[in-house]
Amino acid sequence: MPPLHDRLTRAAVGEDSSKPDHVGHRERLRLRFRKAGPDGLQDYELLELILFNAIPRRDVKPLAKALLRQFRTFADVIAAPRDQLLSVRVEQEGRPPLKATERVADEFAMIRAASLQFQMANVIDRPVISSWKDLLSYCRSTAAYEPIEQFRVLFLNNKNALIADERQQTGTINHTPVYPREVIKRAIALNAASIILLHNHPSGDPTPSRADIEMTKQIVAAARSVDIAVHDHLVIGRGETASFRSLGLL
Rank of each mutant, 00 (worst) to 15 (best):
P3H: 09
H5S: 07
D6G: 00
R7Q: 10
R7W: 01
L8N: 09
T9M: 08
V13E: 10
E15S: 14
K19F: 02
P20Y: 09
D21S: 13
H22K: 01
V23R: 11
G24F: 00
R28I: 00
R28N: 13
R28M: 05
L31N: 05
P38V: 04
D39I: 01
G40P: 06
Q42D: 11
Q42S: 11
Q42G: 06
L47Q: 08
L51F: 14
F52I: 04
F52P: 05
N53S: 15
A54L: 07
I55S: 09
A64E: 04
A64I: 07
K65C: 07
K65N: 09
K65I: 10
L67N: 11
L67C: 09
R72H: 11
V77W: 12
V77I: 06
A80V: 12
D83Q: 11
V88G: 01
V88L: 03
R89A: 15
E93Q: 13
P97A: 15
A100G: 08
A100T: 10
A109F: 03
I111Y: 10
R112F: 09
A113G: 00
A113P: 00
A113H: 10
S115C: 03
Q117S: 04
M120K: 12
M120V: 01
N122Y: 04
P127Y: 09
V128L: 09
S131L: 01
W132V: 08
D134V: 02
D134F: 11
L136E: 14
R140E: 10
R140S: 09
A143R: 07
Q150K: 13
V153I: 10
L154W: 02
F155Y: 15
L156E: 13
L156W: 12
A161E: 15
I163E: 12
E166L: 13
E166V: 14
I173D: 06
N174K: 07
N174F: 06
N174W: 01
I184T: 05
K185G: 07
K185A: 10
R186P: 02
A189F: 03
L190W: 04
N191V: 04
D205A: 02
P206N: 02
R210N: 12
A211E: 15
M215K: 00
M215C: 13
K217L: 14
V220R: 15
A222W: 03
A223C: 14
R224E: 15
V226G: 05
V230W: 06
D232F: 06
H233P: 01
G237V: 10
E240P: 00
R245T: 11
R245P: 00
S246F: 08
L247W: 01
L250F: 05
